[in-house]
Amino acid sequence: MTGMTSSSRPLLNRRLTEFGTTIFAEMSALAVATGSINLGQGFPDRDGPEEIREAAVRALRDGRGNQYPPGPGVPELRAAIARHQARRYGLSYDPDTEVLVTAGATEAIAAALLALLEPGDEVVALEPYYDSYAACIAMAGASRVPVTLRPDPERARFRLDLDELRDAVTDRTRLLLINTPHNPTGTVLTRAELTAIAELAVERDLLVVTDEVYEHLVFDGAEHIPPATLPGMRERTVTIGSAGKTFSFTGWKVGWVTGAPDLVAAVRSAKQYLTYVASGPFQYAVAEALRLPDSYFEEFRADMLTKRDLLAGGLEQAGFTVFRPAGTYFITADVRPLGETDGFAFCRALPERAGVVAIPNAVFYDHKEAGAPYVRFAFCKRIEVLADATERLRKAFAH
């Protein structure tokens, strides 16, 4: 019996050949090797509310979720998600047919795209985008069509060109993939922008998948508006949420999908052959987390705003051009005022130069040149860590 060797046929599926080890793994390893402060990967360095952690412990001890939970998610969590959507946004979802619990938002994205796309379909996505978008579109056999958010230095934000978005839609377009609040730029799409997106989706009969994992992190008077709330959108929109970003338990991997019954059923068909189920005891804890009073969400946002301003101010003092985000916990900065033009080279040298790790934004672009001068810093860290990082950056770059 003979086996196939790597010399006779490539081992990696050709759809995935452009996707190697993620930049997050590379930069996190570099942070460890150099003893640098890791502001690259977006995970908090402090756990979320103690009462929610204890809720997970209680579920473990009570034997809830230690075996396979129900495929759609435990009823308590699905009901809590439905209540959250109704209370925050006026969106009414049936927890039995219109809510699906997933292994984090990353699985929700994968399941939605695998379920809803056919080979040859086109997906219009806002560039730069979270790296799993491109990989999941490729695995579905579809093609991504990026619409680039352009920097607007006068307003210190990135903006969407609606004409470019309309021009990107063709007869092969099946789906719009929207992320707001937007990672990595921090852009929060306005009601006018989202209304235009909704009108385009209805006019061209497009499905819409919306990644809203940073929904509770909006600043400076910005408002998070779920596209599903707009006319004609509920029946065509798959909305994705996550507990990790809101409650600072990213390792629990609890995400969810809400949408019309036919859309959720389609996503569930794909999801059941990915993880099947996950995070059993943590689902019960997240159900309790979603019932926290509004004061928790306000305090969480205020804490992140303080951290945003601390890091943004330090970056500005070090000489970067800073785009203060209206949402998320990431800051995009332009390295060109420092005499640099290549974000990759800058980030690979930064640990030795300043003892800090960041991520080059170009990894989130198909049009690499558009993202070349930008780097991303995460501010979901303790105040003392951010203060140390900003001092290191000032010493390395400020003149």
Rank of each mutant, 00 (worst) to 15 (best):
T21N: 03
R348W: 11
E369Q: 12
S132A: 13
F397W: 05
A142S: 03
L100K: 14
S6L: 15
G255E: 07
G313I: 08
V363D: 02
A372H: 06
R204C: 04
A115F: 14
P10A: 07
L230M: 02
G371C: 07
D205T: 08
A134N: 10
Q41E: 10
D294K: 07
G186R: 10
E316G: 10
L116Y: 03
P44Q: 03
A112E: 01
N66I: 09
A370D: 11
L311C: 08
T187F: 08
F158M: 06
S8L: 05
V74Q: 05
F346P: 10
N66G: 04
D303L: 04
E154R: 09
A82R: 06
V277R: 12
T180Q: 07
L77Q: 09
P184E: 06
A289V: 00
G35Q: 15
P226M: 12
Q85C: 03
T2I: 14
L60R: 10
T246Q: 11
L16M: 05
A243P: 00
N38H: 13
G355R: 06
L310P: 03
A333E: 14
R172Y: 13
R234P: 00
V254I: 01
E384A: 11
V208E: 01
G90V: 00
M1R: 03
P69D: 02
R64S: 10
G280Y: 03
I225G: 00
F346V: 09
R157F: 08
A243N: 01
V356Q: 06
R166V: 12
A156R: 15
T275H: 14
Y273C: 15
R58L: 01
S248D: 04
I109R: 11
